[in-house]
Structures are given as C-alpha cells and as structure tokens.
C-alpha cells in the first residue's frame, strides 16, 4: 500500500501527537539474526537472480522466510540463501534482481479479476 508521505518529508519540530507512547518502547536488538541475500530461480532453465535480502538466525529459517517473502506467486522455484557476509563484491557491482511472478493462488493476480470491459486505468 502507499507509504510515500510527501507531507511528512519535512521533519516536524516536535513529535506528532499521534505518538501515544510517553516513553520509548523497549526494542530487542536483532542479535543472532544474520543478514542473508536471496537468489531465486523463477523457472527451470533460468539462472538464480538476486531478489533482495532478509534477516534470519539460520539457513533453515532463512529459506522459509525467503519462500514466504519472495515466492508467494510462484511455486516450483529454487531458492538460494547466502549469508551476506559470505558475499565478496567487486567495487561497486550488484546484479539486477529479476521479478517474474508465476502463477499460484490465482486471486493474487490482477488478471483474475473480472472487471467491466469499459473501465480503464486498472
């Protein structure tokens, strides 16, 4: 959904009244949560492409989170998760990610919806 808060780009002088909390909510540092880079093979015959990153304590959970986050619209893909620390990079070079939704739960797809023929812009 939308998040671009054009109206909020200027820093207000004081905290907004909407803050609610009088004191800081304790936050737990994400210890033990490594950063992982995620690579997905969308279809047989294609190579793995970098699609983004996520946090997870170990490879098993990283794979599961990658599945939840990056393949909601595709099954039968291959996922690689690599600890970000294991990536050696030239300077500066990162591959373009490749987003290709494949079909799964069809109500996720715009084409699933029956819209009146005369409507435009959707």
């Amino acid at each position: 959904m939308n998040g671009v808060t054009r109206e909020g780009l200027e820093q207000p002088a004081g905290a907004a009244k909407s803050a609610g909390a009088a004191s800081t909510v304790p936050t737990v540092a994400r210890e033990g949560l490594d950063l992982w880079e995620v690579f997905v093979r969308a279809r047989r015959g294609l190579s793995h492409q970098h699609v983004g990153s996520l946090h997870a304590p170990d490879a098993e959970i990283a794979l599961r989170r990658a599945r939840d986050l990056y393949t909601r619209r595709g099954e039968g893909v291959s996922i690689w998760v690599v600890p970000a620390s294991a990536v050696s990079a030239s300077d500066p070079g990162e591959k373009e990610p490749y987003f290709t939704p494949a079909r799964d739960k069809d109500y996720r797809y715009p084409t699933y919806y029956e819209l009146p023929k005369e409507v435009r812009g959707l």
Binding site: N2, G3, V4, T5, G8, K17, A21, T27, R30
Partner: peptide
C-alpha cells in the same frame, strides 16, 4: 529496531 523505535515514538511518520 531503530526504525521501529522512530515509528513508535513519533519521530518518523506514516501515510
């Protein structure tokens, strides 16, 4: 964690 804290304390906004 820092970003969520900013949200919770009103230092950063949302739409």
């Amino acid at each position: 964690a820092e970003l969520l804290d900013a949200l919770h304390t009103g230092r950063q906004r949302y739409s």
